[in-house]
Nucleic acid binder design. Structure first.
Lengths: 179, 179
DNA sequence: ATATTATTGAACAATGTGTACATTAACATA
DNA sequence: TATGTTAATGTACACATTGTTCAATAATAT
């Protein structure tokens, strides 16, 4: 029922997205101006604002786009079945690595807070399902926060290493540390 | 050999610091303008800029001030001796709690990145000294990153809970999770 | 071929940044 | 108390960024 986008709209949106991502590779979000974006995307100022209310709205749109792409779309293409938590974490790392170009830009710098919050929500659900795997004598909410945040730290760590990592090894190391 | 500050300078600096901290309690760093600061501090625009080159410089100055105050100054006033890692972590939490007014403002929101980086450096040294306590079969740099980041997550967690926590319990829970 | 819709560029007000400078007030010292 | 030094003030300024408006133009769908 969703009407297809006008080709012009699609092209403009693409151009803005691409310009923004390219700028994110070299600059922090706060230092990128709307002017920078429309210059690189080569679109008019009014065009930008007819697509996005603010720069924040653009960031939000791009985060949810990429998140959907990685976590809901291609995530089923991981080779082999996924059963336990360790494999699921490797699974996530594998997909982030496959999309490293986008990920490094969004996680590598501090601009990554928003995107990270998407991932955190996802991880929170994931770890909640596996809380029984950790027989630690600590409050559950404390444990959950610990797992989510420390795996996020691992993701950032991998992004800083330009995703030149082995998903399986990282996932195994993570599980070893928290088990 | 350091010449004492002119009383006017001290007063101005204090006023700016206080205004900034108060604003940080309710607003995110990025949304606070120099105008807001000088309005609340009730000092002239040029006065502000004769003290600090930019808003970033002010944040940096305030972070290192508070860090020095907490981690180098009062940290010896903790009741009882500190020996093992768990006690040291409780120690840190205890002091952060004692300075909760400053801490919540600086850690509670995303503005906390800079201040957190000070703490991270400190924690990195601390955990490095205790790496032998963790006999985990994972690379040392991975383990160190994990410990530092997950304890920072715990600090943020405590700040979000307005520091209404028991330092001893939190430190114990943390050690249980990573041991 | 035509009606619709997106894009454009230019102009605009509003807000914020950082600097310059002459004037005034507070300070230290003798 | 008188004097030279230093800090604070306010005003004004150039500049950058944001977000809006609008009429003219181009691409699109039918």
């Amino acid at each position: 029922m969703v009407k297809a986008m006008d080709r012009r709209q699609r092209k403009t949106r693409e151009a803005i997205f691409n310009a923004f991502r390219e700028l994110l590779e070299k600059n922090r979000y706060e230092n990128i101006t709307v002017q920078d974006i429309i210059d690189r995307a080569d679109v008019g100022r009014s065009t930008f604002y007819s697509h996005f209310e603010t720069k924040d709205a653009l960031l939000k749109a791009i985060c949810s786009d990429i998140f959907d792409h990685i976590f809901r779309g291609e995530i089923c293409e991981y080779p082999g079945e996924t059963h336990n938590l360790q494999e699921k974490l490797a699974h996530i790392l594998w997909h982030l690595k496959a999309n490293k170009k986008d990920i490094i830009g969004l996680l590598g710098c501090e601009s990554g807070e928003l995107f990270m919050s998407y991932i955190k929500e996802y991880l929170s659900e994931l770890f909640k399902m596996h809380l029984k795997d950790f027989s630690k004598d600590v409050p559950q909410d404390f444990l959950l926060n610990h797992l989510v945040c420390s795996f996020c730290a691992t993701l950032k760590w991998c992004a800083d290493k330009k995703m030149n990592i082995s998903p399986e090894e990282i996932a195994r190391d993570f599980i070893r540390v928290v088990s």
